[in-house]
């Protein structure tokens, strides 16, 4: 049975501006209303937006811009606030994995971009998440060049540790944690990477400098402070656990006490 929906979508043509000092100027924008009939419950949420966009183009109206690529919940590109929740009402999935059978005929759906000063809106539902890349550039890696000649099985890693590191490593960098947090903190994202590398023997030599540099970059990007409300983890499509934030805090305070940064 096809559904009729009312969509309220954020439309913004001019980008938000953020200067080097961190001053933020919103680009302005507003919620527009669209009626959409013939929505099949088998459609994914993004396919529903495709249908809307085709309709808009046919009517000579500008389609809604949104980020997406894999449509399988792994690239981390899709990023929408749906009825006030990052990635919509279902837990443990991204927007692209959400299907229209989660909605009812006659529903009104509010669709907005991530809202955070560190993620300026580029257009409509698209935001600039390059701050995440810069945090990784600050230290989210192991400093090895191509061509290491150490056999992969030289250093055994207990399955328990390996599995924990893996859990942290599944972060897709979508930014829902920031969008979910009332302080727009990036702690969960940063903690996932710090934790993964702190757990593994390969990441140990640089662990102190890494956490300090990544946290410093996070602060510089204008993300808010973490007050442990846990909204991030609850909305994270990959279920990244708060345990990683705890581990990062330990890493951070440990590093501060015995800092190797001179």
């Amino acid at each position: 049975m096809n559904m009729k929906l009312t969509l309220k979508i954020w439309r913004q043509s001019k980008p938000d501006k953020k200067d080097a000092k961190g001053n933020f100027t919103p680009g302005g924008g507003k919620m527009e209303t669209y009626a959409l009939n013939e929505v099949s419950p088998d459609m994914s949420f993004l396919e529903m937006l495709d249908v809307l966009n085709e309709k808009l183009v046919k009517e000579d109206k500008e389609p809604v811009a949104f980020d997406h690529d894999c449509r399988e919940g792994i690239c981390g590109m899709c990023s929408m606030y749906i009825n006030g929740q990052p990635h919509g009402p279902d837990r443990g999935i991204t927007t692209c994995q959400l299907h229209m059978r989660s909605f009812k005929d006659g529903d009104t759906i509010y669709i907005e971009p991530w809202r955070a000063k560190a993620f300026p809106v580029i257009k409509d539902l698209m935001v600039d998440r390059s701050a995440f890349d810069r945090i990784i550039q600050a230290g989210g890696y192991v400093s090895v060049n191509t061509g290491v000649n150490v056999d992969a099985n030289e250093i055994p890693i207990g399955k328990g540790i390996a599995d924990k590191a893996f859990d942290a490593a599944t972060c897709i960098g979508c930014g829902a944690c920031v969008a979910a947090c009332k302080n727009a903190s990036a702690m969960l994202f940063v903690a996932a990477k710090v934790s993964q590398l702190a757990l593994l023997p390969q990441g140990k030599p640089e662990r102190k400098a890494r956490v300090e540099k990544m946290v410093a970059q996070m602060d510089e990007e204008g993300f808010g402070a973490c007050t442990n409300t846990g909204a991030c983890s609850a909305e994270c499509p990959k279920g990244i656990s708060l345990e990683h934030i705890a581990r990062m805090n330990r890493e951070y305070f440990g590093a501060k006490l015995t800092s190797e940064r001179v």
């Binding site: 192991v142 000649n149 399955k159 390996a162 993964q196 593994l200």
Partner: peptide
């Protein structure tokens, strides 16, 4: 495989800790 493990890629492991 050597390269990726050195980078911290968490491949699946057996209980003994080997890949």
């Amino acid at each position: 495989i050597d390269q990726c493990v050195a980078q911290g890629v968490p491949f699946a492991r057996e209980y003994g800790g080997l890949l």
